[in-house]
Design a protein around this nucleic acid. Structure first.
Lengths: 220, 220
DNA sequence: GTCTATAGCTGGATAGAC
DNA sequence: GTCTATCCAGCTATAGAC
């Protein structure tokens, strides 16, 4: 099946180009050249360079998310979530895939084809995170006070920003990630407080926060 | 002084282009055309398109940060910080300046001239955030357990990611921001706990977290 | 300082041979 | 399906008139 092979080589070459040179360096010529394939085939197989990028984004994200699915599935505490988060960050930074997503996200501005592809890709990540958060938060004292879906969006966005920061200042990104780690430990400590303190926190929270949650949910 | 006027018109037009069409749409022709100026002047005044973008980034960021400086200066509690954060997000989304920074950050990949400019620009924001965090955290029960500089990087990165997310899914970005708001309220509630609970939290935290902080600081 | 004109290049996209 | 050849648009950068 030589067709599939060519398509695969093109999507792989496109991702490599984004990783190493940034999205601005992507063109039918550079990508095809890297794949050792004629430039015209980009248009034969994908119609346009944007479509090639969109397809590559979809395929790669699905593949990466699938890799972590098993690890996400066994997370049940905040600390475990942080551990997995660190693993994902480390691996993805080495492989450069979150960077790819960040690049495509930026390039999606005023590019409808890419926009929907990156939105779909990001949703793959957030839905995974959301499932984990739902499980982790459901067991803790904050159950019902936070919205897992919204929090998942926040986490994903933070990850994207971190990966972008990493490309221009890796030291700062490393420090930031360590700090998030420490925030997680603090959250965990609060999670492990005795029942008296838990009730105190909940009492303080439930009024204002609960009303915020319900009003937001109602408006959706 | 007609020179400065032309330079200003070019940097302004460059930023407008990034805002409305994304960084990929920036070229000497599009920018100069928008400014109603001849294309060659980009090279006369700035030497290259990259340099124009870098300069525009520097100028604009300095201007935006200066606008919020007064507001940052009076922040002394976590809730006030969140309020200012919301204001910044709302204003910057309307004006599109954080989006510009996010775009340039992505475009900095493999572009040394832009890279240093965006790194400088981001540092302007983080140093502001750091000052505020130092003040806010110093008054709270977490004083000494968190590193304001690292946390400032994390906050800035999260903002960048949010603004990027906003361009492809504004609903998700809004939800994420609301959730961060709620996290802030929770933190504030903990901040306002009685002295007994405070001591309990600190006791839980201080061992593990403190050692993490000191080991990190020592390694720098 | 600003304009016109242009050289030289790269990129998107298509036609047609194989 | 893949390649060669090609057209055309748009881009960077410079030279030279004003």
């Amino acid at each position: 099946m030589p067709t599939a092979d060519t398509r695969d080589r093109l999507t792989a070459a496109a991702l490599d180009t984004v990783r190493e040179l940034g999205v601005t360096a992507v063109s039918a010529r550079t990508v095809a050249g890297r794949a050792g394939i004629n430039q015209g085939l980009v248009f034969y197989h994908f119609g346009s360079v944007d479509n090639l990028m969109a397809e590559a984004c979809r395929i790669e994200t699905a593949r990466r998310v699938a890799i972590y699915q098993d690890r996400f599935a066994v997370v049940s505490t905040l600390r475990e979530l942080l551990d997995v988060g660190r693993q994902v960050h480390a691996t993805e930074r080495a492989e450069g895939n979150v960077t790819v997503l960040a690049q495509l996200l930026a390039a999606s501005n005023g590019n409808p084809a890419l926009r929907t592809a990156t939105a779909d890709a990001l949703r793959l990540w957030t839905s995974q995170v959301e499932m984990v958060l739902r499980r982790v938060l459901g067991a803790g004292p904050l159950d019902g006070l936070l919205d897992p879906a919204s929090l998942a969006h926040a986490v994903s966005a933070a990850f994207i920003g971190l990966e972008l920061l990493d490309t221009i200042d890796s030291h700062a990104a490393e420090a930031a990630l360590g700090e998030l780690d420490r925030l997680g430990l603090i959250a965990e400590a609060i999670d492990n407080l005795g029942p008296v303190a838990r009730r105190a926190v909940r009492a303080k929270l439930s009024h204002h926060v609960q009303t915020t949650v319900t009003s937001r949910v109602r408006s959706e």
